[in-house]
Structures are given as structure tokens and as C-alpha cells.
Design a binder for these strands. Sequence first.
DNA 1: TTAATTCATTCATATATTCAAATATTATTA
DNA 2: TAATAATATTTGAATATATGAATGAATTAA
Lengths: 113, 113
Amino acid sequence: MNELKGKVEILRIVAHPVRVAILDELSKGVKCVSDLEDFLEISQPNISQHLGLLRRAGIIDYFIDGRLRCYFLKNPFVLDLLEILRKEYDRELPGPECCPVTKKGTYPGERRR
Amino acid sequence: MNELKGKVEILRIVAHPVRVAILDELSKGVKCVSDLEDFLEISQPNISQHLGLLRRAGIIDYFIDGRLRCYFLKNPFVLDLLEILRKEYDRELPGPECCPVTKKGTYPGERRR
DNA sequence: TTAATTCATTCATATATTCAAATATTATTA
DNA sequence: TAATAATATTTGAATATATGAATGAATTAA
């Protein structure tokens, strides 16, 4: 799970509005599928598909409680991801004026001759 | 850029190995396209397409220096994202045994009757 | 002006994703 | 054992994405 490649794959899986909503909800605690049904506005089979994707990617897992499947978060990287998804970003980055050398030894802003 | 929706869209754009590589490189400083060509193993037109995507998403921008286009990072959320992509995660999350109530008032682990 | 450099755009094709609809599975309850 | 509840799987159609190939600016150098 530590190589970049694996994390990019996780990113790809997470990068869907419904799946982010599911993960955000799971970050508050264990939920069964019908809990999720209550607050997502999509069909149960569709929810199930998203859960399957997330589970096969190792992002979530479940245990069985009676006839409920109780899903929970399993992946610490995703927790950090959720955190920055919730964070406020008010400004853009400072411009590049201060920055390093490009290929041929020019500095940004400096005109090559 | 602050609503969740926009960030999920950014995630979707970033979630590609080549684009992560580009962004990681840009996080070190301004680079022109031919700098990127040197260390990515894909064709220039393909690099250009990825740059175009990233630019249209507001993630990067460029200034012109002679005949070079010097690209730089523009989005602070993406900086945080790159940071957690580089971070080490050695353990899984603790299990759910400690956790909140599911829909019908059962506790995880507790059997419903 | 011509040629070279640097980068972008367009197009075609292969592949992947999304979602709905129908159906299946599994555990519990009657 | 049959019925029900909770959830999963499969299939298929629409759409989106990825990438290579070819081509097209724009700028600069000769």
C-alpha cells in the first residue's frame, strides 16, 4: 500500500461523488447498506456496486451482523484523503516568480537569448 | 474550489499515473514541457494532452519564456494531495469493534435477536 | 524566407466506467 | 420448509477516457 502506484489506484477508485459520500459517511462510523440507502439517492444495487469496488480495492471491509452487512473504513490513506477533502482552501498558491531553474538554465521570467 | 464537488472532480483528474508524475515533478518547481519529456517515457503529444487537462481543471498554469512554456502548480489542495501520496502508511486502521450504532440500534459485534 | 524547435490539437480506435434492470444469494423468521 | 429481508451479481447500453498518429501553429534562428 505504500508505493505511489497503489495510492494512485486508490485515488482513481475514490474519485467518484457517490463513493466519496459513502466514505465520508463511513468515516463517522460503521454503517450497514440500508443506512447508506437512507441518505444516498441512488438505487440499492448501485450502492452495492460501489461498495464492491471499494471493498475489492481494500478501502473498506465489512462484518456480518444478523442479516446486515456492516461496512467500515480500512485504509488510513483514505482517512487523510477525506480530511483534505473537507478542508478549506481559500487562496491560490503563490506564483512561480521565486522558482528554480528550467531545463536549459533559464530562470522563470528571465528571457532566453 | 471549496465545495466537495469541485474537489472530487480534481481527484478524478489527478488520479492518473502520468498526471501524478507530472504534478510531483512540478511540486519541485517550474518545468517546461521538454523537461517533462526527459523524465516521462511517453510521447510529447501525450504529455501535452495531460498538461492541457490539468490546466483546464485549474490545477496548473504556465507562463511563456522564449519558446518554452513553463508550467507550475496552482492549486493548494493538490499540494496537500501530493503530500499524502508521498507519506508512509504502515498499518491498517484499527478494526470497528469500538464503533457506533447501525441503523436499527444494533452494535457491531452484537447479535440482533 | 526557410528551416528548426517547441508545443498543441484533432482524429480514430481501443478500452473502461457508469448505471439501470433483472435476477440471484444468504440469513432470518414464521 | 417457505417466505421475507438485506444485499450482491450479472448483463447490457450509453458514455467517457486513454493513447497513438498525423498535423498544425507559433516562435526563433539561419
